[in-house]
Every structure is written in structure tokens, then in C-alpha cells.
């Protein structure tokens, strides 16, 4: 409980930092003033049109990917599973590439709708292949997801390689970034993430039973089939919305659950909220760092996350006893 409170405070701190820091730093006091009472000043414009949207996006996308990652690893009982494995991110990428290549779309809000659509279709497809009569089977689901992802990515690459304009637009989307998004994208994906998080809260406790194996879970009065279907739908919603907002961010959903287990142990009722908060924190911090390292430009959040998060993750894995799943 202490950990949750501490993480929440850290997340608030990171958000404040994210509002204040950038190519033009604004003192925290000014940030808080203009946040509640917008005026015509330059600081107010910067905070409201640039910093608030990207901070809000970083937080909800981080939370969504962290929670989705924890659920994904719980449901597949595979420590290497990540939310993108359901084909969600590949589906989104393929849809975005089609939108750029065929329709010459050049608007992030439209990309978001296309990626939501692509994510939904791809995940439904993976789900249909990966399910047996007993519900989604962990190993088959993971394999089906990887296969479908590879297929979609290769098709997307096929289009990208044939057309340099598409490559130019796609490489910036594919790297994962929070910049250049206005607040409308936040409102666009928020409903999906909110519903996903509520369902995740319903879904998480049952994962503890599922870890004992399906037969044991069933004998203890649980319906594994219904539970797993719900879990997959939640991962689909959260990852699809996150990808729609910021592009495919691969590393977060895989790593954050492992970090969460260092704090929370094996109980999914704790792992899932920890993973969510850690995801939001990591994403926001990575975004802030990305704005600071190469002034006056910035480094995309997906790149920073891996560059900074990778070594930290390696250290954590070396230092501590792994919590096995």
C-alpha cells in the first residue's frame, strides 16, 4: 500500500516536471498558476497546447501498457509475453501504413482511428486462431500472435519499401512518440483506456487462481474460459488505444510487469496496479528525458525508454532474485 501511494506521488511529481521542462523551461509556480487560470501569456500557451496533451498522453499510455503487459504475462503464463503479441501493434502499424500509402493521410488523429481499427481486427483474428474449445490456449495464442504480427509487419514493410514518402511518414510514427499530439487524441483514446482499466481491475484477482493451472482454477469455482476471454479483450482495448495514441511502444509492456514483481511479489491484485503506475511513471520520465538530452531537438519517447530503461532493467535483473511466473 505504501508503495502504491509512493508511486502515485512520484507520478504526480513526474507529471509536474513534464509540464515545466522542455526547450523553454517554465518555473513550477507559473505552471501551476496558468494551469488553473489560463491567460494569454506565452507560458500559458505552451503549457496548454504543448505540455498538457503530451503529459496526459504519456501517463495514460504508460498506465495502459503497464497494465496490459501484466495481464498478458499472467494470462499466457509466459515471462516473455508482451501486449503487442496479440497482433495489436502490428495490426495498427499495417492500418497506418495503408492509410499513408493508399489514402495519403497526414493527420495523427486519423492515424489513431486507423490504428484502432487495425488493432481490433488483428487481435480478433489472433484470438480466433489461438482459441480452443477451452478458451484461449496460452501457447497457441502466443504463437498465433507472433505469426500474425510477423505477417502484418512484413506486409507493412512491403508497402513502406516501395514508397519513400510512406517510409518517411511511417518511420516517425513507428518509433513511438508523444510529441505533436493535441488534446483531442487524448479524449479520443481515453474512453477505451478507461473501460479497459475498469475491466482489468475486475480481471486481475482471478489471475492468481489461473496461475495454479486451469484444472485447479476450475475446481475452485472459476470459469477459466470467461476469465481469459475478458483478459484478452482488456489487453486488446488497452494496447490498441495506447498504440493509436503514441505509436507502437514495445519495451514498456514487457519490462514493467517484471519491475512490478520486484515490489509486489506474485499477487496479481498488487502486480497489476504497480505495473500501471510504474508504466505511467516510466513513460512520463522517458518523455521528459527525451526533451532534455538533445536540445533544441528531442529524442522520441520510444527510443529514450529503451535506451534508459534497458540498462536499468538489466541491472534489476542482475541484482535481484527473479520472481518466477
Amino acid at each position: 500500500m505504501v508503495g502504491i501511494v509512493a508511486l502515485t506521488l512520484l507520478l504526480v511529481g513526474a507529471a509536474a516536471l513534464s509540464l515545466a521542462v522542455g526547450s523553454r523551461s517554465i518555473p513550477l509556480g507559473t505552471v501551476i498558476d496558468v494551469l488553473w487560470s489560463p491567460d494569454q501569456s506565452e507560458a500559458s500557451t505552451i503549457v496548454h497546447t504543448l505540455r498538457v496533451p503530451r503529459t496526459a498522453l504519456a501517463i495514460i499510455v504508460g498506465i495502459a501498457l503497464g497494465v496490459a503487459g501484466a495481464l498478458m504475462q499472467g494470462h499466457t503464463r509466459n515471462p516473455l509475453a508482451e501486449p503487442g503479441l496479440l497482433g495489436v501493434q502490428a495490426g495498427a502499424a499495417f492500418a497506418v501504413v495503408l492509410a499513408i500509402y493508399l489514402l495519403r493521410v497526414d493527420d495523427l488523429a486519423v492515424y489513431a482511428w486507423f490504428s484502432l481499427l487495425g488493432a481490433g481486427i488483428a487481435a480478433a483474428f489472433v484470438f480466433a486462431i489461438g482459441s480452443t474449445r477451452g478458451g484461449p490456449d496460452p501457447v497457441t495464442l502466443v504463437l498465433a500472435g507472433t505469426a500474425v504480427s510477423a505477417l502484418l509487419y512484413s506486409l507493412a514493410q512491403g508497402f513502406v519499401l516501395r514508397d519513400q514518402t510512406t517510409l518517411d511518414a511511417y518511420r516517425f510514427w513507428a518509433v513511438g512518440s508523444t510529441s505533436g499530439r493535441d488534446i483531442s487524441i487524448f479524449w479520443q483514446v481515453l474512453p477505451f483506456i478507461a473501460v479497459g482499466l475498469v475491466l482489468a481491475a475486475v480481471n486481475a484477482p482471478g489471475l492468481n487462481l489461473l496461475q495454479l493451472g486451469e484444472d485447479v482454477a476450475r475446481s475452485l469455482g472459476m470459469s477459466p474460459w470467461r476469465h481469459k476471454v475478458l483478459g484478452v479483450v482488456v489487453v486488446m482495448l488497452l494496447t490498441g488505444a495506447a498504440t493509436a495514441a503514441c505509436g507502437p511502444i514495445a519495451f514498456l509492456g514487457l519490462v514493467v510487469p517484471h519491475i512490478a514483481r520486484f515490489f509486489a511479489g506474485v499477487d496479481y491484485r498488487w502486480v497489476v496496479p504497480y505495473a500501471g503506475l510504474l508504466g505511467g511513471l516510466l513513460m512520463t520520465l522517458a518523455d521528459v528525458i527525451g526533451r532534455l538530452v538533445v536540445p533544441p531537438g528531442e529524442l522520441q519517447v520510444g527510443i529514450v525508454m529503451a535506451l534508459v530503461g534497458g540498462p536499468v532493467f538489466i541491472l534489476l535483473v542482475r541484482r535481484h532474485r527473479m520472481v518466477r511466473i
Binding site: A250, V255, V304, A306, L307, P311
Partner: peptide
């Protein structure tokens, strides 16, 4: 494997 993933992520980011 986990360290490999971390390392791979850093290198991919590069």
C-alpha cells in the same frame, strides 16, 4: 533471456 531482451531493446533503440 530477460537480459537479452533489455540489451536488444537498447540496441534496437540505437
Amino acid at each position: 533471456v530477460l537480459i537479452g531482451i533489455g540489451l536488444g531493446a537498447v540496441l534496437t533503440a540505437l
